[in-house]
Write a protein that binds this DNA or RNA. Structure first.
Length: 411
RNA sequence: GGAGAGGUGCCGGAGUGGCCGAACGGGCCGGUUUUGAAAACCGGUGACCUUCACGGGUCCGUGGGUUCGAAUCCCACCCUCUCCGCCA
């Protein structure tokens, strides 16, 4: 099944014309540089009057070299630009499909509720409880913005702190990272080129508001060569996330499902270049998230994301979709991605094998732990009572201080 | 934001046009000595790309430029430190 990675399908087969041209040019350039070096070595033990001819030759060679170098760098940047758009071949086990409708459900957990009363959606629940104010959020920052107030804001914090505690217990190290990052981070993690329209940019400082802490988290060791004994690196970050959601007008415009700014606890792992290890790790990371959702007593399903719904660099992806009563369906809350060495190559993120030998590219993986306010949707909607109260899962009590959100308007 | 100083190998730190991939010191590795260790002494010790190999190339913050030749000269940028201002 993994023959695609085992060497049959080496870069050899993907080598483009540009690559061959570049190599030829580089070879030529290096030869001429060697010549030039030799010439200037000779120069110093030659009498001044004998230098003239050599100087002239040097000048001419320099012009030629310059031309060649310019050509080489032109070809190289064209090549690199092309390389950046190359997608990662999916794992052969990924189901074929053109879009998310063809994702394959692997399993479900929990009971989908059947309300015996007229159930409300999270927007009216939140408004009635006085913990959610969308109109004023829109007033402050436009559509897809919101305000969480009082217990709403507290609930969000509780979910996030629970997520951090959950992952700390799994041995992940909490990091506080820059979420305003440079172009190299965006490109290195695979968001650029391609994701520019979805990203808030700060042109004055040439920085970008990343849509997930996966970006800084994965880029932490970019350009470095780690020791194999330092691997795997397992970290989480709690950060705000920003997404422009361009081109989604009208799509999920209602409520807290798709918003421009949200909070997320993200898990990220950097490991050795070992696909079996990587596959196993992805399973673990998925399990961490499932346990978390289970603790929140939210029914969910796990989906094996099909080829057509896979991101450029993703080799395999499993989504967790929570049951959201107001949608009458599942909504994505978690996304566990495996990248093989896709991101590591772009980030130049390597490690020195402990057995010796050349540095190798790491493998990287990431998964959501908790994203809010999206997670507040099932939490509020599933916990609602006929009188408009909302009962929260026990697991949040120590973080929230209570589990009952009382409807002030009830009789 | 204003003024100044600086960015060199694992670390400290020399080096102001060819003899510099880079002195010297520390560290690290190996050896001698020692019952063992420490100390002392001797030797070794950068990374990456390319090549079966020989070899070749790149790298002294980054990117340009000058020159036959740049760690060294020029320009721009980035970063760090000190002082002042401001600030969560």
């Amino acid at each position: 099944m993994r023959a695609i990675w085992s060497g049959d399908c080496k870069l050899e087969n993907l080598k483009s014309e540009a690559d061959a041209t570049y190599r030829r040019l580089l070879c030529d350039v290096e030869e001429r540089r060697a010549e030039a070096k030799r010439r200037s070595q000779e120069m110093k033990d030659i009498a001044a009057d004998e230098r003239v001819a050599l100087l002239e030759e040097g000048r001419r060679a320099k012009q030629e070299l310059k031309g060649l170098e310019a050509e080489a760098s032109k070809v190289q940047s064209a090549l690199q630009a092309g390389l950046l758009t190359l997608p990662m071949p999916p794992d052969p086990e990924v189901p074929e499909g053109s879009d998310d409708s063809q994702n394959v459900e692997l399993r479900t957990w929990g009971e989908v509720p059947d309300f015996s009363f007229d159930a409300k959606d999270h927007v009216s629940l939140g408004a009635d409880l006085g913990i959610l104010d969308i109109p004023r959020g829109v007033k402050l920052a436009g559509s897809r913005n919101y305000l969480l107030l009082g217990d709403g804001a507290r609930l969000e914090q509780a979910v996030l702190r629970f997520a951090v505690a959950h992952m700390t217990a799994k041995g992940f190290d909490l990091a506080s990272v820059p979420i305003l990052v440079n172009h190299a981070c965006m490109e290195g993690t695979g968001y650029f080129p391609g994701g520019e329209e979805q990203t808030y940019a700060v042109p004055k400082d040439d920085l970008f508001l990343s849509g997930t802490s996966e970006v800084p988290l994965t880029a932490i060791h970019s350009g470095e060569t780690l020791e194999e004994s330092d691997l795997p690196v397992r970290r989480i970050a709690l950060s705000p996330c920003f997404r422009r959601e361009a081109g989604t007008y009208g799509k999920e415009a209602h409520g807290l499902y798709r918003v421009h700014q949200f909070w997320k606890v993200e898990q990220m792992v950097i490991g050795p270049n070992d696909e079996d290890w990587s596959i196993e790790e992805q399973g673990k990371m998925l399990a961490h998230a499932e346990e978390f959702v289970q603790a929140l007593e939210i029914p969910y399903r796990v989906v094996d994301v099909c080829t057509g719904d896979l991101g450029q660099g993703q080799v395999r992806k499993f989504d967790i979709e929570a049951w959201m009563p107001s949608r009458g369906s599942w909504g994505e809350t978690h996304s566990a991605s495996r990248f093989h060495d896709f991101q590591a190559r772009r980030l130049n993120l390597r490690y020195k094998p402990s057995g010796g030998g050349k540095p190798r590219f790491c493998h990287t993986l990431n998964n959501t732990v908790a994203a809010t306010p999206r997670l507040l949707i099932p939490l509020l909607e599933l916990g609602q009572q006929s009188n408009g109260d909302v009962v929260l899962p026990e697991a949040l009590e120590s973080f929230m201080g209570k589990v009952l959100l009382e409807n002030p308007a009830k009789g």
